Simulated assay, not measured.
Amino acid sequence: MVSRKELFARCRDLIAQRDEETADFDTNCILQDLLGDRNPMFAPQLPVPDDKAQEILSLAQRRSEGYPLQYLLGQWEFWGCNFKIGEGVLIPRPDTETLVEQVLDICRREKMTTPKIADLCSGSGCIAAALKKELPNADICAVELSDKALPYLRQNMELNGCDVNIIHGDVLDSSIAEQLIELDILVSNPPYLTAQDMRELQTEVQHEPATALFGGEDGLDFYRAMTKLWKSSIKSGGFIAYEFGMGQHDAVKAILEENGFTDVELRRDGGGIIRTAAAVKALSR
């Protein structure tokens, strides 16, 4: 049997061949998960059974080949909650917490304690679950089309104790939009990568579902179609909030304004990139 210290070194060496910067973090995450120990290196001389060591080395090898760490572990944290994930569902990212924060700020400012919210292109359900955790009395619906993502969405709502209505359907289907009316807030992190982005994807991202990534030639297809279709579902004075890619903020702002939304507020993520926008549906006269 090898010691934890020896196993860590072997795994780190494997992963460092691909990415020196993340090798320590990735190795520690794998050991934490498979050894069931939050601080595996506090006892570096503890022996690791051969079968367990082989399993850990196998994951390190796959990571060194560019397979996403999050898929290897089968779960990832978002907003302090754990989400089950795997191939077929988009990996939750810290950037998306900016969108959650913006929606929560709207609710605090407008004194909404029981808002009616629709989360479109819900994927793993990380946005819907985070909002439900912070707004327990909110009426939240999550809409997702993918047959592969849907089981994760349902599992994550149960895992995190979130009573969220799940609709299996296409966000671009008018019959779905007609089911959800008088919304206080519509929130979405839709596919927004351009055709050029898709051609230049990192190896890790290539494992994620293209349907959750590709937003058309300029990355804006979903923003155009969803805003036009769903604006009637939002009540006058209600809000729409989107996440988007780097450099897309002016185009998304223009799409919102063209569809009768005003007071567009742009927000930067933790890396300083303008990442989200929220706007108000003009009051009916």
Rank of each mutant, 00 (worst) to 15 (best):
Q54H: 14
A53N: 12
P44C: 12
P92G: 11
Y223A: 00
I166H: 09
F8R: 06
K235C: 11
N189T: 03
A251S: 14
D24M: 07
C107I: 15
A241D: 05
I117E: 11
L201I: 09
V171W: 08
N165W: 05
R109M: 15
A210V: 13
K84D: 10
K111L: 10
F83P: 07
E158A: 15
V103A: 15
E65V: 08
V252Q: 05
I176M: 02
A16I: 05
V48C: 11
L213H: 08
V205S: 01
G260K: 01
N165I: 09
V252A: 06
Y152D: 04
D218N: 06
I255N: 10
E110T: 10
D37M: 13
A130V: 02
K281T: 05
S236Q: 08
A16L: 11
K235F: 09
L99W: 07
G161P: 08
L73R: 14
Q102Y: 13
F222G: 00
E158Y: 05
L90K: 02
K132M: 15
G86Y: 12
E97R: 10
M1D: 13
C121Q: 00
N160F: 03
T276P: 00
D95S: 08
R93E: 13
A118M: 11
L131E: 13
Q206G: 00
V171T: 12
S284N: 14
D24Q: 09
P47D: 04
L14Q: 01
K281G: 05
Q70M: 13
F244G: 00
N156K: 07
A23Y: 03
Q75M: 00
E243T: 09
G36N: 12
I255H: 05
I274F: 13
R12I: 05
G66T: 04
L220C: 05
